[in-house]
């Protein structure tokens, strides 16, 4: 019921749409696009900001999520670093990106050496079939990267 209203309303509002405060980073987007539209500029910016000058390294970071989203409003995503974690070699920051979501940065984890591990599982809501990326910055500056595509068969989560 709510989604149907939302779709008809967003079509009617059309050119008068203004992105709310938190999404105002996408200033280059024209006002006529839907609120659920992907934000490729924000995705690229988030990737570039996390990578900095480092090149992403494949391996050492595992991402586990289903290939088909039964419930696009709650997709279980499990991410963990498989490299040994010690007091001197640990994961500083881990970021999960949903490439085609209206807000591509799904979440960010900042681990401390006191944690002793770098593992987390969350539930994402996805607007459409897309690739989920996970990036982890280790204490030695290396950035581990991995990705997996997930198919959202039902109509995606309308957030």
């Amino acid at each position: 019921m709510k989604r149907r209203d939302f779709v008809t309303r967003s079509a009617a509002l059309g050119g008068a749409l203004v992105l709310p405060g938190g999404l105002a980073r996408a200033q280059s987007k024209p006002a006529t696009t839907s609120l659920l539209a992907p934000n490729p500029a924000e995705f690229k910016r988030a990737m570039a900001e996390f990578l900095g000058t480092a090149r992403p390294v494949e391996g050492g970071l595992k991402l586990e999520l289903p290939v088909l989203a039964d419930n696009p409003g709650a997709v279980p995503v499990h991410v963990w670093v498989t490299l040994p974690i010690t007091e001197s070699h640990y994961c500083r920051e881990l970021i999960v990106l949903a490439e085609l979501n209206p807000s591509p940065v799904a979440c960010r984890f900042r681990f401390s050496p006191a944690a002793g591990t770098a593992e987390a599982a969350v539930r994402l809501r996805l607007s459409q079939t897309q690739t989920i990326h996970a990036l982890a910055r280790m204490s030695d500056g290396k950035v581990l990267a991995t990705q997996q595509t997930i198919t959202v068969a039902a109509s995606g989560c309308g957030m």
Binding site: H78, R108, F109, A114, A115, R125
Partner: peptide, 29 residues
């Protein structure tokens, strides 16, 4: 936090589901 030590911080965005679920591990020191 475990005692005084911060284990980790999680910063969700709008792409996290309703009724946010978090699962994590830590080494009990």
């Amino acid at each position: 936090r475990l005692g005084q030590n911060l284990l980790f911080t999680w910063e969700p965005g709008i792409s996290i589901s309703q009724n946010p679920y978090i699962e994590f591990t830590f080494a009990a020191r």
